[in-house]
Design a binder for these strands. Structure first.
Lengths: 146, 146
DNA sequence: TTGAATGCAAATAATTTGCACGGAT
DNA sequence: ATCCGTGCAAATTATTTGCATTCAA
């Protein structure tokens, strides 16, 4: 069940929704969370899909460039990826500085969205940047580690 | 001119303000910007200070754990570091998705600070996290790449 | 049949580690 | 004398690349 929307995006990019690519997307749908390349590869193995690690890397990159996935970064020395949910205007991360656990936070306050939009406009004017997206990270101690 | 405050911190951590450590801090004072380990190493060479790359890595890590430096991350596959001082209250980054150029934005709007503090409180309550700091990244096209 | 996609192994790049030495306390 | 900090080189980890093969339009 690879979504029609995705098929369309593949078509727009002149890329094919190959078995490996679909399998990778399935993994993300099932996990509903951020994963590293190695983790994706692991999940695929568990599902008896044989996809080489190089292909995983190549496709995570492709899917990010196509805007289906988004790269996120928790400072643990490897890239993580997550599904871009179109419904979600933004996306925050809470990272535990002790155990490294990272949880996603995507509830949305109107006020918050409005504020960040305003801030983006301001920055565009001030720095000549054309801003496309943003990410917010909060660092601290999770419940267990306090 | 390694600041008294830093000496104190070294002392609190039972660590010594060695020549390499001071030289590294000097580099950051002069640059007033984020640097990768390799860049720090390069600057040290230019200043005729001979510090091995392993020592640079070890000390960037140490200085981060001591709270003098902060790790920042631009998704280019390597860690960057910056002085915590320069960005006390908060610190934003504008990253060009085309050329990778990353500029720092540390001007501060009262409104902005207040807003993020409020948001932190909210998240602490909702997720049981004890938040210590945050980082905000904006992604888009810089002036040249538009 | 032709270019796109993949697997595998080798190559790179960034960072970490083991170990012996030198210097400060 | 002891232990911290360091340099060097080797090891590890994450990611990328070259190339021959396979696959799909």
């Amino acid at each position: 069940m690879v979504k029609r929307k995705w098929k369309e995006i593949f078509h727009n990019f002149d890329k094919r929704p190959t078995p490996s690519r679909c399998a990778i997307l399935e993994v993300f749908e099932e996990e509903k969370s951020h994963l590293s390349a190695e983790e994706v590869h692991e999940r695929l193995k568990q599902k008896r899909k044989k996809v080489g690690i190089a292909t995983v890397y190549r496709n995570l990159d492709l899917l990010s460039r196509m805007g289906i996935l988004r790269r996120v970064n928790f400072g643990d020395g490897r890239e993580h990826y997550e599904l871009v949910q179109t419904s979600e205007t933004h996306h925050h991360h809470l990272v535990c500085v002790n155990c490294g656990k990272a949880i996603d936070y995507s509830e949305l306050m109107d006020e918050e969205r409005e504020f960040l939009n305003r801030l983006e406009k301001e920055l565009e004017k001030k720095h000549g940047f054309q801003i496309q997206s943003h990410q917010v990270y909060f660092y601290g101690l999770c419940e267990k580690c306090q």
